[in-house]
């Protein structure tokens, strides 16, 4: 928090942000009061407070995360972006309770991360698909439903629906080794959505997809998130992807992994999801947001960057 590179800004609750982002005029109309996510008490999806993560390895310890503060509101779409090794996956694993923080607290929907996991509050898609090779596509998607005792009729209905959504209905009876990497990843995404979780954790889910499928899946994800009102924590390496999808983009820096800056996207509360159509990709405001994230990613710390830094804010 004391490193002066925007650590303070990493707190999501900041109501002062909309004012500081005024120069971004392209977003006309939806600008004012729109930057902050809706955050009435009790609707916080993820709250990360002062989290450090240190890995003890044989060659000394690795500080993967340092003083991370992040709040994700219910229904909010937050992307994590940053160079390889900056701790994005680690942060996601802490939220998913697959690892425990060395210091600080992680809570999900007001519960401890562990309780949230036991209560099945989130769905997760890993960096690699992680399908069970001996199960067909349909059986893979059905796995969480099966484990949680969903009746077989309801299960097959839901699976058909999910496969239709990711465009793999024709491949329901195939095995993972008969699919391309991108198709496998789509199955994994369908699986993560199976139980309509309130929180989706996605670690570079579209990394293996071709550009066309990727854009289609992005639009699908926006639609799904809007429909189900799910909050999404989304790790990506693609700036346009982060800009297109997110309400806020969390820019991280490596060694130790810190939040360098949180860049709010220009879209407003009400129009947040609805406005993210394909046309958005061609708008000027979109490119300005891309530039803002790029500068946060590559540039100097916003405090010392002078006029440019102001602009990115």
């Amino acid at each position: 928090m004391t490193d002066g590179d925007g650590g303070l800004r990493s707190d999501a609750g900041g109501g002062s942000r909309p004012a500081s982002r005024n120069p971004d005029a392209a977003a006309a109309g939806i600008r004012d009061g729109a930057g902050a996510p809706p955050q009435p008490a009790g609707t916080t999806a993820v709250e990360v407070r002062g989290v450090d993560k240190i890995f003890e390895t044989t060659s000394g310890h690795v500080q993967a995360l340092d003083a991370i503060d992040l709040t994700v509101a219910a229904g909010e779409f937050v992307s994590l972006i940053g160079p390889s090794g900056c701790g994005k996956s680690t942060l996601m694993r802490l939220i998913a309770d697959l690892d425990a923080p060395s210091a600080g607290t992680v809570s999900v929907f007001g519960k401890t991360a562990k309780q949230a996991r036991l209560d099945q509050e989130y769905g997760i898609a890993f960096q690699s698909a992680g399908l069970l090779p001996w199960r067909t596509v349909a059986a893979n998607v059905a796995l969480p439903l099966e484990l949680h005792g969903v009746a077989s009729a309801a299960r097959s209905g839901r699976v058909a629906e999910l496969l239709d959504m990711v465009g793999l209905s024709d491949f329901a009876d195939r095995y993972p080794d008969q699919l391309s990497g991108g198709m496998q990843q789509r199955v994994a995404i369908a699986r993560s959505l199976a139980e309509q979780p309130r929180l989706l954790l996605m670690d570079e889910p579209f990394g293996a997809l071709d550009e066309m499928t990727r854009e289609k899946m992005q639009a699908e994800l926006v639609r799904i998130a809007a429909e189900t009102g799910a909050a999404v924590v989304f790790v990506t390496h693609s700036i346009p992807e982060a800009v297109f999808l997110s309400d806020r983009v969390v820019v991280m820096s490596p060694r130790p992994g810190r939040i360098r800056e949180i860049v709010p996207m220009r879209l407003g509360v009400d129009t947040r999801r609805a406005a993210r159509t394909e046309e958005l990709r061609e708008e000027r405001g979109f490119f300005e947001m891309v530039t803002a994230v790029r500068e946060a990613l590559h540039g100097e710390t916003p405090v010392t960057a002078g006029p440019r830094g102001v602009e990115t804010r």
């Binding site: 099945q120 989130y122 997760i124 992680g130 069970l132 484990l147």
Partner: peptide, 19 residues
């Protein structure tokens, strides 16, 4: 990754064993 997947489903010892 598969073990962790089962963990995220809060699957206990026996379901993990069987599935």
């Amino acid at each position: 990754i598969h073990e962790e997947l089962m963990q995220t489903y809060a699957a206990g010892y026996w379901p993990t064993l069987v599935k």
